[in-house]
Design a protein around this nucleic acid. Structure first.
Lengths: 242, 242
DNA sequence: TCTTGACCCTAACGTAACGTTATCGTTTAT
DNA sequence: ATAAACGATAACGTTACGTTAGGGTCAAGA
């Protein structure tokens, strides 16, 4: 197989193959007199492995090490990488929190309700907590209390969710593509993402479920007739626009 | 202030200041005849803002736009960035899952219990679920059921946690720094990270709480006298070794 | 006054993983 | 024979600096 065939088959660019050749990560089995690179099944197999590790975020250098050195412990490499990824995710979580805080400060108005929205998450009123925080640091205490807090959080989140339902119901007669609608649906997206991790597709699919599933629809339409449909449309538009 | 003072003050390198000067992101108020860069309070302020956005992962180009253009909507920029970060986090979550799956395949033995460990998370037995999955896609269904599943998950997690407690109790007489101990504590770390996000410090702090807090200690020591202390030590060693 | 540190400067290559021209040779079908 | 499709190498561009390399500046002590 020549470069284009391989590239098209696995969905990478020709340049990438050139590059992998240049750095010795994936050499073609041989080259024709004209210098054309010729790849065979075994190169394809190696390429699959390369792409696998690449998808996991490994740098090419490491991939080369891992593949070239069968004695290299792949499991260990995976474990190490796993922890690097965890660290990265924590970093991102921190950034997300910071942004939220900042927006709350910057925006002020609408976000004042955001303030309230998270007020319940603060346990500073509990004297034992106060002491615990000083002794062990905030983060550890927060984590240790995760189970207990989870209930409070959930209660509070439910309230927040209800509020947002109401605010969505208020505008359910407007165009789901309108700026207001999209802003509030974005809030909805962010709110859900505080609970779990939602892809845009999942978000859109969820909107459809709101309409198709009786149980969901009834519950949602309690806030206003037609809200489920409105939300589905707004959610689809939102997801597609990203 | 000269470069070194500024650099030391805010904790960046001199080269970084040179760089910011070169790309016009942060120019010193003036330079001496000898070409020395002199910064004043207002530059420091701008630098703080730069570092703030940088911490959020903004590229320098954008930071320049945001800061140079007061009409540029900072809130909008933050919101956009927020979503980029969410996407990144989702990507990382996917990678984490993939690694886990792979390790389960690769390792086989110990991880066979991992298989079981997650078996309860599969709802394929429910016929309605089956249908729902086909109609809306797995991800959406999973998310829609988050609340219901959460309970199951929690139950199941509790079981998993208990199992791990037992396996930790089994080796509680050994050295917390031993390979076995560290392996199992690593599992513990990963398990907790499936529930929430734990920094290494929080993890370590949590270990201390296991010992200091009577409630925790009693519960843990049910699995074996001295387990709490053993876990604290192992957790501290683990955290420090990363 | 000269020297020695401590500090400053510019210039330029290196990094990761290719994307993107630019220029040119090869193969194949018409 | 010629054009279309494909292949090749070469080399700059990208991000945010780290890292030498080579060489001035300034204040203080000998």
């Amino acid at each position: 197989m020549q470069v284009k065939e391989v590239a098209d088959l696995v969905g990478i660019s020709i340049r990438t193959l050139h590059h992998y050749d240049a750095i010795g990560l994936l050499k073609p089995q041989h080259t024709t007199r004209a210098g054309y690179r010729i790849y065979t099944a075994s190169e394809l197999e190696r390429l699959q492995q390369i792409l696998f590790f690449k998808e996991l975020g490994f740098p090419l250098k490491n991939i080369k090490e891992i593949l070239d050195n069968p004695s290299f412990d792949q499991v260990e490499a995976l474990e190490k990488h796993y922890e690097r990824l965890l660290a990265k995710r924590r970093q991102i979580d921190t950034m997300l929190e910071t942004i939220q805080k900042t927006m709350r400060h910057t925006k002020g108005e609408i976000t004042m309700s955001n303030q309230e929205r998270f007020a319940g998450f603060d346990f500073s009123s509990n004297p034992y907590e106060q002491e615990a925080r000083e002794r062990w640091g905030d983060e550890a205490v927060d984590k240790a209390n995760a189970n207990i807090n989870d209930l409070n959080k959930r209660e509070n989140l439910e309230q927040t969710i209800n509020e947002l339902y109401h605010r969505l119901a208020d505008i359910r007669k407007e165009d789901p593509a309108s700026e207001v609608a999209q802003k509030r649906i974005a809030e909805w997206f962010h709110l859900l993402n505080e609970i779990g991790t939602y892809s845009l597709d999942a978000f859109k699919g969820l909107g459809q479920i709101y309409v198709d599933d009786e149980c969901f629809r009834k519950n949602i339409d309690q806030f206003g007739e037609g809200l489920a449909i409105f939300m589905r449309d707004a959610m689809a538009i939102y997801a597609d626009s990203k």
